[in-house]
Design a protein around this nucleic acid. Structure first.
Lengths: 167, 167
DNA sequence: GGAGGATCGTTGCGCTTGCAACAACTTCTC
DNA sequence: GAGAAGTTGTTGCAAGCGCAACGATCCTCC
């Protein structure tokens, strides 16, 4: 391959040409799907239960955990957010009575976020609407197999980003 | 299928059981990948060019557009963010000299965000690092075909969410 | 051609988040 | 055991975003 006619502008053109790169498109698509899907589910959740999606995220993770409780740090990791962000988030949810902080028996520094009865009740009433919304958005777009495939592909990306970014 | 033994708690258990639903897992995975990938690329971009990812998003979209310019509203749609958010974002980028606002000839309400020479220069110097980071994160996780497949699946989700949520 | 409605971009305001610093506690090391 | 080093959760602070309201401009329909 011969050298390009105009060296310095050519590197610029080269860089511009690479803007259509597959990986950049992938990043953009992840961002767009995230925003669209989050906005859509948020609207649906506001209409049906007047609940922020993040609250539901916390409630779901607690409900799935043994004893309906989770350490603050672990919850923050699960939610992929900072511990300070999670502190305020749990503050709000606790003020609404859906969660409660409990001291941790085997580590006196730690706190456990515990799902209250009211939190569990709110979750069981909001979950069906949330799921119906999600089905409405996803099922016509992707078959069950495609959804599973998408999950697997995304999980592989997540795992590798985590592994190569955390150190 | 016989009725469950304890009716009212059973609906609760039922709702809790559905928390493992494929669609909820998919939503969670999209959120996680978004956060991880955004944080990772952000760190890389800070280290190499000290540039927020959103700035690069604007720069890339402008560079790809004919005349390196885009209407504010269209840019907001492309970035999947509100017009007010974009106003402040462009404010910052313009203050840094990478973009410039120009009046729109055929619509005196409108403004065009135009890439400046400096913006183009910053983009061409930052893009290679950004792409290298992205390759480092994505290529070991997914083959070229899988990446393309992932893009296609995500695009179908995006399109359907947009179509069924906007009205 | 002019009035009503829609669209474009900006601003005030409040909310949520992350970073850095901190105190309380645990764990490692000698 | 005592001190150093790390971890856990909270707080002050500032940055960024979306919503609602606003003026300016365009478009439609009589």
């Amino acid at each position: 391959m011969p050298a390009p006619p105009t060296p310095d502008p050519a590197t610029g053109e080269d860089a511009i040409a690479r803007l259509d790169d597959r990986r950049i498109e992938l990043l953009g698509m992840v961002l767009e799907v995230h925003n669209e899907l989050l906005n859509a589910t948020q609207r649906g959740l506001e209409a049906s239960a007047d609940l922020p999606v993040q609250w539901l995220g916390v409630l779901i993770r607690l409900a799935r955990s043994p004893g309906q409780r989770l350490r603050m740090t672990e919850l923050a990791r699960d939610m992929t957010m900072s511990t300070s962000g999670l502190t305020r988030l749990v503050d709000r949810i606790e003020a609404a009575g859906l969660v409660q902080r409990q001291p941790c028996a085997e580590d006196r520094r730690g706190l456990l976020a515990v799902l209250t009865d009211e939190g569990r009740s709110v979750l069981t009433s909001a979950a069906p609407c949330h799921l119906a919304d999600l089905e409405r958005y996803l099922d016509p777009a992707l078959s069950a197999e495609e959804q599973q495939l998408l999950i697997d592909l995304l999980r592989r990306v997540r795992d590798h980003v985590r592994a190569s970014a955390t150190p």
